[in-house]
Structures are given as structure tokens and as C-alpha cells.
């Protein structure tokens, strides 16, 4: 429920609403300028052809088709690992671990630390472990798996928070109805928590999409159209980095690529919101 009735709110509330609104607008000013600059620089280059063809001349001309496909593949690998593993870990924390127990504290700490490991360390680790030790080489699989390790804590945190929001009453009702825990998790807990889990997916894929250093060391730099999970494939963020820092005259295409990345992020957000709402609705 929300406080729509303004007559109920006191005068101080309206005052607070005003200065907070001002802070909100001011804070958004810089990001808006940033995105505006991207739009001004990148929009002219953004054509259908740009979206469909592979980069040429080190990215100055041609498009980002193959890069876009590689990015989606890497993201698919990443989410394919993060969703089951992260949800499993979050459920374990909520359902099986007593709050305040040593195990709980240990796992929470592990998550905190994992979340604090610098991404460049993940890159070095992923390169060594997935690319060299497991023999996956510079590949979409290496990149996706390394990214998965990196965004797991973020996703688990979001999932855990929303799982904990399920009222204890639901749980008791389910137990009283002699539902198994699995039944409860599947039919009641997960659907109730769906919007929060969806937010976790958004956050995780957002970070995965934004990551550069990790992917440079794992998924690699190749701009060819990917043919298998074992091909090396450059992602959008790596492409932006290379164009901005390494290729003179790549600025326009870097901005255009950043715009595509933003649109992709919006798409994921909308999709996650819809899926979250549908699965929540289905349970009621």
C-alpha cells in the first residue's frame, strides 16, 4: 500500500518531498548529460547496417553484428550458470541456514568477499582457470563462466532479499496444508519472490554487460561471427574499450556501440519486469 492521500501527509512531508525531488533531479543531471553526449555522438552512426554487419577497419567502419551476437552468447552462458546456482545458494541461505549461525555468517562473508574481489582479479583467475587449466581457451564459454563467478554475489544478494520478504504466515499455511518444502518453494516462495529475482537478473546482466577487463582476458578480442561456444568473441564493452582507448577515430562507433548496449540493458530490464510480473500473477 502507498500513501496517496496527500491530506493525510503533513506539511513537513511536502517539504521533504520537495528537497528530495530536487536532489533526485540534480543527481540525475550528470548521467543525463553523459547519455546525451552518447546520443549526440553515436546516433548518426546507428543504422540497421551497423547492427547487422561485422566490424571492419578495426571497428572504425562496418558494424557490430558479430560483437552483438557474441555478447548475447556470453550473457546466455553467464545467466545460465548464475540463475540455477545463485537461486540455489539464496534458497539454501533462506531455507536451510539458521540466521546468525556460523554457517550463515561464513556464507555471507564469502559472498561479501566474492563481491569485493576486483573484476581484474576475476579476469586473471578466469584466464588461468577456465582458459588454461580447463582448456577452454579464449572462448565465449570461458568468458561467460568467469562473468558468472563475478556476478553471483550480486544476484544472490538480490534473490536472498526478495526470498526473505515472503511472509512467515505463507510458510506456516503451507506447512499446515502438509505441502512439502519443495512444493512450497516452487508454488509459493519463488512466485512471490519473482520480481525481486528479476531485479537480480537485471543487476547481474547489467554488470556482466558493463564488464571489460574480465572479458578481454577470457572471451577475447576476435570480431568474427561466433560459430560455437568455444570460439573467441568480443563483447560490446570490450569493443567500446578498444574503440575508445586503442583505435584513433573510433569515437563515433564507440558511442554508437554504447547506445546499443544501453538499449540491450533496457530490453533486459523490460523483459525481466514482465516475466517477474507474470510469474507473480500466476501464483495468485
Amino acid at each position: 500500500m502507498r500513501i496517496e492521500t496527500l491530506d493525510h501527509a503533513s506539511r513537513s512531508d511536502r517539504l521533504h518531498a520537495r528537497w528530495m525531488g530536487l536532489v533526485a533531479v540534480l543527481t540525475l543531471l550528470v548521467p543525463v548529460l553523459l547519455v546525451g553526449e552518447l546520443l549526440a555522438d553515436g546516433l548518426p552512426a546507428l543504422t540497421t547496417d551497423f547492427l547487422l554487419s561485422a566490424p571492419a577497419d578495426a571497428g572504425r567502419s562496418g558494424g557490430i553484428g558479430s560483437v552483438l551476437v557474441s555478447t548475447l552468447w556470453v550473457l546466455a552462458v553467464c545467466l545460465g550458470v548464475v540463475l540455477p546456482l545463485g537461486l540455489g545458494c539464496a534458497l539454501f541461505l533462506v531455507e536451510h541456514v539458521r540466521a546468525g549461525s556460523r554457517l550463515e555468517r561464513g556464507l555471507q562473508l564469502a559472498l561479501d568477499i566474492l563481491g569485493g574481489v576486483p573484476s581484474i582479479v576475476f579476469g586473471l583467475f578466469g584466464n588461468r582457470f577456465f582458459a588454461v587449466e580447463l582448456g577452454l581457451g579464449f572462448s565465449i564459454l570461458s568468458g561467460g563462466l568467469t562473468l558468472a563467478c563475478m556476478v553471483l554475489p550480486l544476484f544472490i544478494r538480490a534473490a536472498e532479499q526478495s526470498l526473505r520478504q515472503c511472509p512467515v504466515g505463507y510458510r506456516q499455511a503451507a506447512a499446515a496444508l502438509a505441502l512439502s518444502r519443495w512444493g512450497f518453494v516452487r508454488r509459493i516462495l519463488l512466485p512471490t519472490a519473482a520480481p525481486g529475482i528479476a531485479l537480480g537478473v537485471v543487476l547481474a546482466s547489467g554488470r556482466a554487460l558493463a564488464e571489460t577487463a574480465v572479458l578481454l582476458f577470457t572471451a577475447g578480442y576476435v570480431t568474427r561471427w561466433p560459430e560455437s561456444w568455444f570460439n573467441s568473441g568480443r563483447t560490446l564493452a570490450v569493443h567500446i574499450y578498444d574503440l575508445a582507448m586503442n583505435v584513433s577515430g573510433g569515437g563515433t562507433n564507440a558511442a554508437a556501440t554504447a547506445l546499443v548496449l544501453l538499449v540491450l540493458a533496457i530490453g533486459i530490464q523490460v523483459l525481466a519486469a514482465i516475466v517477474g510480473r507474470i510469474s507473480k500473477g500466476a501464483s495468485q
Binding site: 534458497l91 539458521r98 512467515v168 510458510r171 506447512a175 502438509a178 512439502s180 519443495w182 518453494v185
Partner: peptide, 21 residues
């Protein structure tokens, strides 16, 4: 009352779930 100590019926599926988690 906390999530952990709500007692559920505990058939095989739950044990598998627990292992997976």
C-alpha cells in the same frame, strides 16, 4: 518463528532439493 524452523513434511524431493541447494 523463522523460515528455517518452520517444519515441513519431508519427502524424498525435499532431500534432493536440500542437496542441490
Amino acid at each position: 518463528l523463522s523460515p528455517v524452523n518452520t517444519s515441513f513434511r519431508s519427502p524424498a524431493a525435499d532431500r534432493a532439493l536440500f542437496r542441490a541447494l
